[in-house]
Amino acid sequence: MMKKYLLYGFLGTLMGFILARIGFANYDEINKMFAFTDFRLLLTFAASVVILMVIRLIFRKRFPKQDKFIQPGTVPGSMLFGFGWAVTGACPSLVFVQLGQGYLPALMTLFGIYVGVVFYRKMHAKYFMWDVGSCSSA
C-alpha cells in the first residue's frame, strides 16, 4: 500500500510541475487561450492529445480504455464546468497548481469545488441517478 502512496505522490508532483511550467496556473494565460488572443496553450493541449493518441495507437494493448459514454449530464455538466473554468481559471487539477504558485484566492476555488462535488453527489442520489462513469485516476 505504501508503494501506491509513493507512486501517486510522484505522479502528482510531476503533473503539478509540468502544468506549472506550461503556464496553466496563470489566469491571464487561460483568459488569452479562451479569448483566442494567444494560441500557445491550445497548441500545447492539442499536441499532448496527438502524442498520447499516436503512442496509444502504436502500443494499443498496453493502454487502458477510457470507459466513458454520453449520458444526460454530459452536455449540461460540461457547460457548467466551462463557465466555472472561465471564471476561476482552474479545473479540478489546476486549482492545486495555482495554490502551489502562491495564488491565495485559489483557496476559495478549492473550497467551491469541494462544495460543488458534495452538492452534486446529494443531487445525483436524490434526483438524477444516472450512471456518469466518472473518471478515476487512482
Binding site: 455538466g77 466555472g84 469545488i113 462544495v115 458534495v118
Partner: peptide, 8 residues
C-alpha cells in the same frame, strides 16, 4: 466558479 467546476 469553483462550485460550477466541481458540480459540472
Amino acid at each position: 466558479g469553483g462550485m460550477m467546476v466541481g458540480f459540472g
